[in-house]
Design a protein around this nucleic acid. Structure first.
Lengths: 334, 334
DNA sequence: CTGTTAGCGCCTTCAG
DNA sequence: CTGAAGGCGCTAACAG
């Protein structure tokens, strides 16, 4: 037990050569005799040696590793990771996902701290998911997914949040709803602002005034959204439909409606945003606006790889389409 | 742009002190005057300095990072990661997920290579998902999820694969099926062997012989499973039900049935294993055996953390229960 | 062909 | 209270 892992020195000692020679063998550099190579390889084999990624990346600039930085691994980022993993195949790069485990993430600027911790060493480039502040990149290429702002300098990937929100709202309107509530997302993210903008635009276009009491904060988070839903449904004149800024919030809303003894969609229509896999786990299944999340992850990786290869991907701001997915949580008001 | 990230030396220069002093401030060591601390903190702030994880981990033994090593990020591992991320919260540890991007993963022993690359440096402990060879751990605690073998030395987490497979088979049997096919999983994994064992045991218990032609390889993979399903359904005397060793295979089977113009469950019953979120995306929705995947990830992290804290978790081999989830892809044979 | 030297960014003695 | 020196594992010059 606990036999510390073999280092390059152990290999060198075992093979009776210098550390530098071992390094040469490992990296296929010229200038090592066949017999020495043989001996070194044998030692490596015997000791189960594998060069330390850390030591190596401290010394070299390139590591062949791309990082994906997330605050947490939840349904959205997990989908994104699937896409990222798909895109990484065949590129020769490896993927490292770094998650602070929620806590540190609350501090504004987590993305820059992470980036600073990993960049220059360990990763050649990074994808940052839902960053709130985007600092000058430290040399390594960075692509932001669903960033705090419509991006100016940094390449970004997002989806058409505004149009998606309009579509959702129009759907509710067409069903005959007029008292439509909106549970807003994280106010520090552009996506949340655009979803609210889309909601308001669709309402305005239909000539339906937005009751300020029906627009509440949900923060893309379960607990806060549940509270928000509770408050909305307890209003003297409650909404007949709720548009939640993401699926997590929509699911929390459905749970709360159930808790309050209401039937979805008979007593209340609910519509979400994202189309995470979990949205089909609810009963009834959630009607929602789909973002191509996996594709967003895929595109982000592709863009980082392209930049790493010295290319200059042209639209640096990629906006993917959204799409209404009709399921069973919306119906006309009674 | 491209201003290389600040190092501890930049901070030292900016604050007019030595590198060592900065290090002391960062790590809260005694022996620095209040005014110096102030100056150093200001410099850190101004430069946006964050110590390099790599340099740090090379120097120290502890990094406060736990690694999760996977061959790829697909539905199963993604679920597991959600659980792992949940478990990491509040522990003070951070999470790094390392994925080889499919390729390197094909080589046997990827887990040991990764572990060797990262262990001792970068990560304090690791969770390895579906390893095929488990070597002596290099000092750092390692927990294996769904390993190649019933684990002897290494702590492991898995679910009751055998019982789950029995349950699935019994369900098919109770519906009246007799020609039941089995699309097997990755033969290098204990889980796949146990699922097949469970299938055979249930068949034997019901006195139904297993037609060798109806047991085919699927490897837990989509392409191979689709082929397998095709072959099965083209048999002169095709099965009336197919039990696939995981949901990916089951979904591939459903797709193939559809391609061949068959109705599920009318012409063919299909049942899977895992209950990944994707299993509710099929139409009809997939009947399957649920493994508590997130919980497996959670438990694995908890165990690593416990060992890191010097505890000796008692059952070192944790087996979680499985459960039949009845949905819409099974019915009696015509 | 092989070994020696220096240094990546950081932290920890140990002197001053 | 502060700074200089050494070394973590590795690689890139340069010497022999």
């Amino acid at each position: 037990m606990t036999t510390s892992r073999a280092t390059i020195r152990d290999v060198a000692a075992q093979a009776g050569v210098s550390v530098a020679t071992v390094s040469k063998v490992i990296n296929d550099r010229y200038g090592v005799s066949a017999s020495t190579i043989e001996r070194v390889r044998a030692a490596i084999e015997q000791l189960g040696y594998e060069s330390s990624l850390v030591a190596r990346s401290l010394r070299n600039q390139r590591t062949n590793v791309i990082g994906v930085l997330v605050t947490d691994i939840e349904p959205f980022s997990a989908e994104l990771l699937k896409g990222a993993a798909k895109a990484i195949r065949g590129t020769g790069y490896e993927l490292v996902v770094y998650s602070a485990g929620g806590e540190a993430a609350h501090a504004v600027g987590w993305e820059n701290r992470y980036l600073s911790r990993l960049s220059g060493t360990l990763i050649d480039g990074a994808v940052i998911v839902t960053p709130t502040v985007l600092a000058p990149s430290y040399g390594a290429p960075v692509v932001a997914v669903d960033p705090h702002t419509g991006g100016e300098d940094v390449p970004t990937i997002d989806s058409d949040n505004r149009r998606g929100a309009e579509t959702a709202t129009e759907h509710l309107l067409e069903l005959g709803h007029r008292r439509i509530a909106f549970i807003a997302g994280r106010s520090d993210l552009e996506s949340a602002r655009l979803r609210e903008t889309g909601f308001r635009a669709a309402m305005a276009a239909a000539g339906v005034p937005v009751d300020p009491a029906l627009v509440v904060a949900g923060d893309y988070a379960e607990a806060l959204s549940a509270n928000a839903a509770h408050a909305l449904l307890r209003l003297p004149d409650p909404p007949t439909a709720i548009f939640a800024a993401n699926d997590i919030s929509a699911i929390a809303t459905m749970d709360m409606a159930l808790t309050l003894g209401m039937q979805v969609p008979d007593d209340l229509s609910v519509i979400g945003f994202d189309n995470i896999p979990e949205s089909t786990l609810t009963r009834p299944m959630l009607t929602t606006v789909e973002q191509p999340i996996q594709l967003m992850g895929q595109r982000a990786i592709e863009m980082v790889v392209a930049i790493l290869r010295g290319e200059h991907p042209d639209p640096r701001q990629v906006r993917l389409p959204t799409r209404l997915v009709l399921r069973d949580t919306t119906a006309g008001p009674r």
